[in-house]
C-alpha cells in the first residue's frame, strides 16, 4: 500500500513487488516517521539572504574562495594600473633625461612632470638620442626642440644633471600620483563574519573585542594579522587568526579551521 493513491504510481510499485521487491509499509506506518517543525521562520531567513543579494555559495567555503579570487583579480588590475603609471613615469623621466641631458638645466627638470605627456614623441626617439656620459662636453644641436639660446654655462652643471633629472619623476609622484598616498592612507579592511553550515550563531571577538553575533556584515579592522574567536552558546569556542590587507573585504566563517587563509604566512 502506497502513501498516495494514484493508480499509475501504485502500478509502478506493484510492478516492483511482482519482480520480488519487499512490500512497502502502509501509509499509517510510514507516517510514524515524523518531521519536527522548523525552529525558525525559514521563509524569512531565505528571503533575507535572497534580498541581501548574498547567495549561499558566497558564504560557503567555496564562495569565500571565489570572493578572494575576485578580490585578488581586483588587486591585479590595480597593480596593472600602478605598473602602467610607473612605466609612464619612467618613460617620462628617461625621455626628459634624454631631452634635457645635453643642456642639463634645472628649469627643464622642474617642468618635466607637467609639461611632457606620457606618450611624448621624445620617448620614441630616445634610442637615437642617448645622452653622453656625465662630464662629457655637450654639444647641443641647434635643431633641438629646447631653446638653442641657452647660455653655455649649463654645460658646467653637467655633473649634477643626472641626479636632478632622476629626482624629477619622484617629485611628481609625491605630489600628483594618486596611488602612492592611497596605499598609506587606507587603514581599514572590512570583514564579513558568519558561521558555517551546521553551526549556530556565535558571538565573535576580534583581538579579544566583542564585535557582535553572527552573521555580521561590516566589521572594520586595521590591515594586518588578527585573531578571531567564535563562541557558541553551548560553551564551545574556536579561535583562529587571519590576515587582512589594506582595503580588502574578507569573509570569515567559523570555525576558522575550515577556512584556508591564502594570506597567512604559515
Amino acid at each position: 500500500m502506497r502513501i498516495h493513491e494514484d493508480d499509475d504510481e501504485r502500478d509502478e510499485d506493484r510492478e516492483l513487488e511482482l519482480e520480488g521487491a519487499p512490500q512497502l509499509p502502509d501509509r499509517e506506518l510510514l507516517a510514524a516517521w515524523t518531521v519536527p517543525e522548523p525552529a525558525i521562520d525559514l521563509a524569512e531567513r531565505v528571503m533575507e539572504h535572497v534580498e541581501a543579494g548574498l547567495p549561499a555559495s558566497e558564504t560557503s567555503e567555496e564562495g569565500a574562495t571565489s570572493m578572494e579570487d575576485r578580490r585578488r583579480g581586483g588587486y591585479g588590475w590595480a597593480l596593472v594600473g600602478v605598473a602602467m603609471v610607473a612605466a609612464a613615469a619612467l618613460v617620462l623621466g628617461l625621455s626628459q633625461l634624454w631631452r634635457s641631458e645635453p643642456r642639463v638645466t634645472a628649469p627643464v627638470v622642474v617642468t618635466v612632470p607637467v609639461a611632457v605627456p606620457v606618450a611624448s614623441p621624445p620617448a620614441s626617439h630616445a634610442p637615437s638620442e642617448l645622452p653622453p656620459a656625465p662630464g662629457t662636453p655637450v654639444q647641443t644641436p641647434p635643431s633641438q626642440a629646447e631653446p638653442a639660446s641657452e647660455p653655455p654655462e649649463t654645460t658646467a652643471e653637467a655633473p649634477k644633471s643626472p641626479k636632478a633629472t632622476s629626482k624629477a619623476p619622484r617629485a611628481g609622484r609625491g605630489s600628483k600620483d594618486p596611488f602612492a598616498p592611497k596605499v598609506d592612507e587606507a587603514k581599514t579592511a572590512t570583514l564579513r563574519i558568519g558561521t558555517g553550515r551546521g553551526y549556530g550563531p556565535a558571538k565573535v571577538y576580534i583581538d579579544g573585542r566583542y564585535v557582535g553575533m553572527t552573521p555580521i556584515m561590516n566589521v572594520k579592522v586595521a590591515p594586518g594579522r588578527h585573531t578571531v574567536k567564535f563562541a557558541w552558546s553551548d560553551g564551545g569556542s574556536e579561535t583562529s587568526s587571519f590576515t587582512v590587507e589594506d582595503g580588502q573585504t574578507r569573509t570569515l566563517k567559523g570555525p576558522m579551521k575550515a577556512l584556508e587563509d591564502p594570506y597567512s604566512p604559515e
Binding site: 522548523p38 525559514l42 531567513r45 549561499a56
Partner: peptide, 27 residues
C-alpha cells in the same frame, strides 16, 4: 524542509537542515 530533514536525519546532521533548506531555495 521535510525532504531535507529526512535526508539528513540518517546522517545525524539534522543541525544542517535549515542551512540546506535555505541553500536549496537560493539554488
Amino acid at each position: 524542509h521535510a525532504l531535507v530533514w529526512r535526508l539528513l536525519a540518517g546522517a545525524g546532521r539534522q543541525d544542517q537542515v535549515e542551512d540546506l533548506v535555505q541553500d536549496a531555495f537560493l539554488r
